[in-house]
Write a protein that binds this DNA or RNA. Sequence first.
DNA 1: GTCGATTTGTTCTCGCGTTCACAAACTCCT
DNA 2: AGGAGTTTGTGAACGCGAGAACAAATCGAC
Lengths: 219, 219
Amino acid sequence: MTARSSSESTRDIPEATVARLPVYLRALNTLADDAIRTCSSEELALAAGVNSAKLRKDLSYLGSYGTRGVGYDVDYLRYQIAREIGVTQDWPVVIVGIGNLGHALANYSGFRSRGFRVVALLDADETRHGEVVAGVEVRPFGDLEEIVESHGVAIGVIATPAGAAQDVSDRMVGCGITSILNFAPSVIAVPDGVDVRKVDLSIELQILAYHEQRKANIS
Amino acid sequence: MTARSSSESTRDIPEATVARLPVYLRALNTLADDAIRTCSSEELALAAGVNSAKLRKDLSYLGSYGTRGVGYDVDYLRYQIAREIGVTQDWPVVIVGIGNLGHALANYSGFRSRGFRVVALLDADETRHGEVVAGVEVRPFGDLEEIVESHGVAIGVIATPAGAAQDVSDRMVGCGITSILNFAPSVIAVPDGVDVRKVDLSIELQILAYHEQRKANIS
DNA sequence: GTCGATTTGTTCTCGCGTTCACAAACTCCT
DNA sequence: AGGAGTTTGTGAACGCGAGAACAAATCGAC
Ligand SMILES: NC(=O)c1ccc[n+]([C@@H]2O[C@H](COP(=O)([O-])OP(=O)(O)OC[C@H]3O[C@@H](n4cnc5c(N)ncnc54)[C@H](O)[C@@H]3O)[C@@H](O)[C@H]2O)c1
Ligand SMILES: NC(=O)c1ccc[n+]([C@@H]2O[C@H](COP(=O)([O-])OP(=O)(O)OC[C@H]3O[C@@H](n4cnc5c(N)ncnc54)[C@H](O)[C@@H]3O)[C@@H](O)[C@H]2O)c1
């Protein structure tokens, strides 16, 4: 086995596995809602849309939480995955850029229910200040530092136009944010130790278009 | 080499490369906006946020569009990538589920400018019917078949709650849609030949949370 | 208690993607 | 014309992830 650090479960989980754990978690939640107490890797894999061997291998990185001949206890496994991902605690989040997309994000109930709490909505446009979206007031972008510090915010969401994304990112990093979810269609540079994930809707559509074109070109 | 089909440029481009081509395209557009005519792989790679060797290999799948000792002609390469992806033509798109997210998507100008045209907005809630969003009227979900047929729609976007996603998907597939972009947090099953891409914001946040937790756990 | 059925955890192999490194090709200067 | 300097395109090495296959472990029947 790999060397194990002293106190905590600090094994390093492959990135591909980390990306699937939330999917398993959601599938388990669905099963739990249907009052299912136990499930096999085959059943869970079906619900999550993956291969059962891959599922078992993924889960094995967390530990041996199943019982051979039986399967997995839904509640127990659910808790273990949630703990491993870190969603048993509440993560405060700030959203910057409360336009079309920012509004939708602020109104989205799925964040709160998954361990994320929107503590602030910030926008540079002062005509938007004071508006209340989903119970949170839109405030000036200049309040960023104060809010991040007082709430201990580690995760920031960028929903501004592309041109502002790098500036917003720099300000976020400057006041201690170390994880950024970027919706703006631009590449942003950050120092080591800061994680950035990009969500780009037009890229997704363009990938679909590429395959669509190839389907049509079977001439 | 692999067998090459008769007429068209039907080489098979690795999936990972396909996913990056839109990024290169956007970087080239930015360069073109700054009146830059030519760029090296190093410069373009920097703008796209990737390794230059990877960029060159990716581009080599399309053909030899660069000039050794010089670099790439921005406009020419831009056209070649756009053609390969299929965004020189216009793709009609339908969006189903005009709630928070659906509104934001309908209002998003970035789709039109990248070769996608929203031809219809559909919702099951009849109190929403008749509303005009970004110049397009919200219509009953039952109109799906008629619209898909008359406009030759191949790409559908699902922005409904998770519970409705599979039903919406089935109806889309039933009337000939072969590419689906799914924003609902649910796994949807489709027959072979239909492409599904999933965008899941809470998964992205959970991945960030995992790494954030590990940063904190360097105890 | 033993046997058969079931299901997990893990090993092994294969293929894909990333990266390095370099030969080929082009420009420009003398 | 030739040589120095650049930059592309690609062969090869390497590492990671996917999936098949199987041994180990547990349960239930008798
Ligand atoms: N709307 C969508 O569905 C959609 C889809 C894909 C991508 N995006 C991207 O998401 C981003 C936001 O899109 P949108 O449609 O909400 O745009 P929007 O113009 O409606 O909203 C942008 C908001 O950001 C604010 N802003 C601008 N500069 C700022 C700064 N420096 N600091 C703080 N706030 C600032 C603006 O005041 C505005 O309220 C864009 O980059 C867009 O390309 C949006
Ligand atoms: N709002 C966000 O920022 C956000 C973020 C991440 C994910 N999502 C996901 O996107 C989806 C939409 O989110 P939302 O916030 O816009 O929800 P919403 O409730 O505001 O909108 C959903 C819309 O879908 C319509 N609808 C329901 N069933 C339908 C059916 N069978 N056919 C057609 N239309 C139907 C409803 O009438 C409603 O207008 C959800 O699955 C949500 O989980 C949203």
